[in-house]
Simulated scan of single mutants.
Amino acid sequence: MSFTKVCTLDDVWEGEMEPFTVNGHEIVLVCAEGGEISAFQGVCPHQDIALSEGTFDGKKLICRAHLWQFDAGTGKGINPDDCALAVYPIRIDGEDILVETEGVEPLFAHS
């Protein structure tokens, strides 16, 4: 696996999300309540809308268009529950946040 530095821990605070383009992949980094950092596809699987334009309450990402909701720890759909976000492996190296994009493709759902 080849990880790419995306940002530092100071760039994503607890309860925040930040969009990034990494090796041509649109991703969103989230720092959930408790400080766990995750990386997901940056677009809603419903209609390809940037998740960074939605909201994040520390537990779930909510798309602005149709209010689809995703668990910030797993990427699994909450509403609706039959969809999910692609998860990108991350690694923390000191203060740096690194993401692996190889082999990960965005997921898309029913309309």
Rank of each mutant, 00 (worst) to 15 (best):
T101M: 00
L67Y: 15
I27Q: 02
I62S: 01
V43E: 14
W68T: 09
F20E: 05
E18W: 04
I92F: 03
V30A: 05
D11T: 02
G73K: 13
G54Q: 06
F3K: 11
D71P: 03
W68N: 10
G103N: 12
E100A: 15
C83R: 09
E16K: 15
D10F: 04
D93F: 00
E100R: 09
G94L: 08
G58E: 08
D82T: 10
T55Y: 08
F3M: 14
T101H: 00
I27K: 03
D82N: 15
G94M: 06
H25N: 15
G73P: 02
T4E: 00
A84L: 11
P45K: 12
V99D: 03
G94I: 12
I78N: 11
F56Q: 13
C63V: 10
F40Y: 14
V30K: 02
D48I: 01
A32Y: 02
V30I: 12
G34A: 11
E105D: 13
A109F: 10
W68L: 07
H25V: 03
S52T: 05
L61F: 08
S2N: 14
V30W: 00
F70M: 11
F20Y: 15
L9F: 02
S111V: 12
D82A: 12
E102W: 01
N23A: 11
R91G: 00
E100V: 01
E95M: 01
K5I: 08
L29C: 02
L67S: 04
I37P: 06
E18Y: 03
T8P: 01
L107P: 01
E95R: 05
T74P: 06
T8Y: 02
